Amino acid sequence: METRLDREGFKYWCSDLPYPNRLIVKHPNTGGGLALIWKKDVKMDLINYTVHHFLVRVVEEDGFVWFLTCFYGWSEYNSQAKSWALLNHLRSFVEGSWSCISDFNAILSSSEKLSRQPTQSRIMDDFREALELNNLADLGYQGYPFTWNNKGPGEANMKERLDQAVATGDWRDEFSLTTVTHLSSHASDHLPIILQT
């Protein structure tokens, strides 16, 4: 998940959560960062990380092995190629089924945006191409269609579905009952999303 909390903030605000395992990395010189929290009984090994991702290997109780990437894409349009280069690079570490849950900071189609400012088709094409190149497909969602709101007034308001979960076909076959739900948020400009397998 994207977070503004550092390790001390997590310790203070999230100590009551039933997730004793935590990875937290802060983006230098900004308020943002990434956090991954999980239950004690989940077998998960960190492969690598940067301020833009965590890549972990998960082993299910039945021995099924899959890879999870928590991803935070570059938000500036002129830097988004870095997001797709990182995604392509991460694929080289994945041996088998793969799922990414992410703030990609990009949309797949114009229907994922509500704004007076249209998104350039090249940006959407680049995102679709990066997913296709890595055999990743959108897992869909339940709930409100937009996960980010700039909270601008009137015509300056912009809403987009920037946060998504995607996966390879073999991952989707293994977890065929998966749901992705957009939850509500009162404080953040992003809605949290939950991936349930």
Rank of each mutant, 00 (worst) to 15 (best):
M1G: 15
M1Y: 10
E2K: 14
T3S: 12
L5R: 12
R7G: 14
G9D: 03
F10C: 06
F10L: 13
K11P: 01
K11G: 04
Y12F: 10
W13M: 10
D16S: 12
L17A: 06
Y19I: 02
Y19V: 05
P20A: 00
R22D: 02
L23W: 05
K26S: 11
H27P: 02
H27R: 15
P28R: 14
N29F: 01
T30Y: 02
G32R: 00
A35K: 06
I37L: 08
W38D: 01
K40M: 07
K40Y: 12
D41V: 03
D41L: 06
D41T: 09
K43T: 14
K43Q: 12
D45M: 07
D45L: 09
L46T: 03
L46V: 04
I47F: 00
Y49Q: 15
V51K: 13
H53F: 05
F54E: 09
L55R: 03
R57Y: 02
V59Y: 01
V59T: 15
E61F: 14
E61D: 14
E61N: 14
D62M: 08
D62N: 12
G63D: 02
G63I: 08
G63W: 06
F64T: 04
V65A: 05
L68Y: 02
L68G: 15
T69R: 01
W74N: 14
S75P: 14
N78M: 11
N78S: 15
S79G: 11
K82D: 12
W84E: 02
W84A: 09
L87P: 07
H89I: 11
L90A: 04
S92C: 15
E95D: 11
G96H: 05
G96L: 03
S97D: 02
C100F: 00
S102V: 03
N105H: 10
L108F: 04
L108G: 07
S109F: 10
S110F: 12
S111P: 12
S111E: 06
L114V: 15
S115W: 03
R116G: 13
P118R: 14
S121T: 14
S121Q: 14
R122I: 13
D126R: 11
D126I: 13
F127Y: 10
F127T: 10
A130F: 04
L131V: 07
N135F: 07
N135K: 07
G140F: 08
G140D: 04
Q142N: 13
G143Q: 02
G143D: 03
G143F: 06
P145G: 00
F146I: 03
F146A: 01
T147Q: 05
K151N: 13
G152K: 07
G152D: 01
E155H: 15
N157W: 05
N157H: 01
M158S: 14
K159T: 13
D163K: 01
D163F: 04
Q164K: 13
A167I: 06
A167M: 01
G169A: 11
W171M: 00
W171G: 00
D173V: 08
E174N: 09
T178I: 07
T178C: 05
H186P: 11
A187M: 06
H190K: 03
P192M: 00
P192D: 00
I193D: 00
L195M: 02
